[in-house]
Design a protein around this nucleic acid. Sequence first.
DNA 1: TAGATTGTTAATCGATTAACAATC
DNA 2: TAGATTGTTAATCGATTAACAATC
Lengths: 208, 208
Amino acid sequence: MTNKIPSAVIRRLPRYYRFVEALCSRGVTRVSSRELAAELGFTASQVRQDFSCFGGFGQQGYGYNTESLRSNLSAILKLQNGYRGVLIGVGNLGLALLHNFDFAKSGLRLIATFDVLPEKVGTSVSGLPVLHSDTLEDFCREHKPDIAVLTCPSAVAQTLAQRLVDLGVAGLWNFTNIDLAVGEGGTVVENVHFSDSLMTLCCRVPRE
Amino acid sequence: MTNKIPSAVIRRLPRYYRFVEALCSRGVTRVSSRELAAELGFTASQVRQDFSCFGGFGQQGYGYNTESLRSNLSAILKLQNGYRGVLIGVGNLGLALLHNFDFAKSGLRLIATFDVLPEKVGTSVSGLPVLHSDTLEDFCREHKPDIAVLTCPSAVAQTLAQRLVDLGVAGLWNFTNIDLAVGEGGTVVENVHFSDSLMTLCCRVPRE
DNA sequence: TAGATTGTTAATCGATTAACAATC
DNA sequence: TAGATTGTTAATCGATTAACAATC
């Protein structure tokens, strides 16, 4: 139950969670740090060190109870917090996410989407209304979303980000290929930079 | 011109590249480590330390020539290597990438896409043929792609990954929410795990 | 009890920051 | 020459690994 979780640990938490959830649904009731490490490519030491950040939920001589592990990880990842989200930019990528991605499973409950194209505004996608971006201020003041998903064109991303920060949105999931400047207000940004990701891949692929 | 580039440095290279390219296209001809650091949120020490991995391309008292920096970074990232790529899974996400994402700009030249749906196979998307996944072996033996983009359903990802590795594909850009096992053959995997990314965001957003 | 496995402390490793001589 | 800024060495910081007493 520590306050400051090292960022290296935070990045590993989702992988623990996914694997432990799979164990639970397969009916496995216990798992050791050694087994977790072997499966996830970590070391057993690292696994125990990671979990000890939160006080440790294992038992000497036994290992970890998968169900207890799962619910602890879920709590640490705040998957049950019911964060409210808006998605901005119902283009190809926005639609792909809306159709295929299970936001709720990762802790986010979408409540609306926004776009500017007349043929999209007023329709609904995956059960969510598509509102005009001009109504963002009104909507956010009323519904207070916690997180915004930015699948808009890069050209408008910074302006939108600033509007969202001003409206009190605490987290931005940024799919645009630009680095957002969000000031000192504590807004958290998580980037999904496709181009950076592909470049690092090319960089690491040995010359044919 | 070192052999072993620290992974922490590799992850920063695309950001340097993007910013330096922007400087070049704005006609800026020089930049100091201090300016780069301020813009990218690094320290000046870190910038110089990073660049010195490659022998250093600056000049005391002057800084870095943007054009020289750009071309050096481009070479290190192997953006001009002309890696050949195939994209597997022409669903929502695959289509979003094909329509919106500039693969060539990040070092990859797509040569074909694959799917299994009869209504898709035989068509073309963004100028690329959509071939049947059953023909993957024949195609790869003839055209020797370097990298595969996995935008297929998670359920078939591991099987496809193994087929691709066996066919000599050296890099996998993995958009499925599973961790691929690719053995010891040196195949490089770059994951774009949406669920992990969103979970870490939720985890870092302070409780409302 | 004996075997297994944790949580934690200490040691190692890698990455970041600071400092400064070299030099443009 | 004087000012600026690099490349590099040393110091600090954080993350990973190893070791082991505690204990289920």
